[in-house]
Design a protein around this nucleic acid. Structure first.
Lengths: 198, 198
DNA sequence: AATATATATTGCACCGAGTGCAGAAATTTC
DNA sequence: GAAATTTCTGCACTCGGTGCAATATATATT
């Protein structure tokens, strides 16, 4: 070891860069030719790697797009665990979620969403990814509020993800007219109303 | 037209029978060799058709399994439209759903569920299929109770499907110890509790 | 009953995603 | 600088899925 500054060797750095090149290449080609029409050969060429190497970075073609929305489960879970225990889970969830959506730019959200809609298999994988997120949120809820009844926490986790899904959906349908935060609020309000009658 | 009895000609009959043979062949082979290890050639051979013909009946291999749970959206929508208008949507949904789950046998539910879990792509398609069901339920709700606010109906549709999903999940995890109906009730109760506090 | 028309089945050639393997190239360790 | 590890690459292969054109079967027509 020559210097002791960074913890990152040449290997990790190159790996990170290559991965990014693949994502960039994928998004670029998907954007111009469409998802289905873009072959892995084309992506590999654009990213200056061999076709075989691609599979050392992604398990499949759709994972390029799925990786864009990865981390939702982790982030939501972390945000939940950061909430005070004495707050009710539903209120905590509301606060946690509103804190998350801020950083994303409307343009990129719309672009990614359009791409995902263009392919059935990607769409399917996206939903599957939501289910994993839901499971993570459930675990976080369960650990942070162990005294709450399990069925309620399952439902709450499912509501959390459904809210993200529905909000993104409406956001995309309205082409970004209302902010994600607004739509999330609307969803939380709707939940409160839903059971208040009869 | 020789006789006027049935509306079904030889064509429709054969088609129906062939489709059933394919499903039977698929389930049989999936059950013994696993989903991934079963090739379309094997299924075609078992169903006594050519590989090419398979694709005139199903768009893809996973559709054999997906077709098992198809119809959820239609059935739920129909059951909702059959509910009295003056009933609150949530109460109507509860009644409609409980009426639906009765006919299914626990064994077949568990068997199909196990198969679906064995393949990632099938799992993903299943979730995508749930989303379509959710959209159908939303449409039915919207048409049947046009005065209810849209966000609430979106949420309710999402809750309906989530309930099915979570109940099937628990049902499978508990290997059928509690009935689907019981689990659905539990989920509805949980929803009522969820917003009642603070 | 014979013929015309529509639909179903099949074989064939083809494409692209994904995998296993084994060797070459690059990085880290000593 | 050599040895050990990890990464990259090419090659051959399997399998799912599609387009096309020919054949076989069912239906409609006279």
């Amino acid at each position: 070891m020559t210097t002791m500054g960074d913890e990152e060797g040449v290997r990790e750095k190159k790996r990170r860069e290559t991965r990014q090149r693949i994502v960039d290449a994928g998004l670029k080609l998907f954007g111009t030719n469409g998802y289905e029409a873009t072959t892995l050969d084309a992506i590999a060429a654009e990213a200056a790697i061999s076709r075989r190497t691609f599979f050392h970075y992604f398990k499949s073609k759709d994972e390029i797009l799925i990786s864009m929305q990865a981390g939702l489960g982790e982030q939501l879970s972390a945000a939940l665990r950061a909430q005070p225990i004495d707050r009710r889970p539903l209120a905590a969830l509301r606060a946690a979620m509103l804190g998350l959506v801020a950083p994303y730019s409307p343009e990129s959200l719309l672009a990614i969403d359009r791409l995902m809609r263009s392919s059935e298999t990607v769409q399917a994988r996206k939903q599957a990814s939501y289910i994993r997120d839901e499971a993570m949120v459930f675990t976080a809820l369960r650990e942070h509020w162990p005294d709450e009844p399990e069925p309620q926490m399952r439902l709450l986790a499912s509501f959390a993800i459904a809210t993200v899904r529905l909000s993104l959906d409406t956001f995309s349908r309205e082409e970004g007219r209302r902010s994600l935060g607004t739509l999330l609020e609307e969803s939380f309000d709707a939940l409160e109303q839903l059971t208040r009658q009869t």
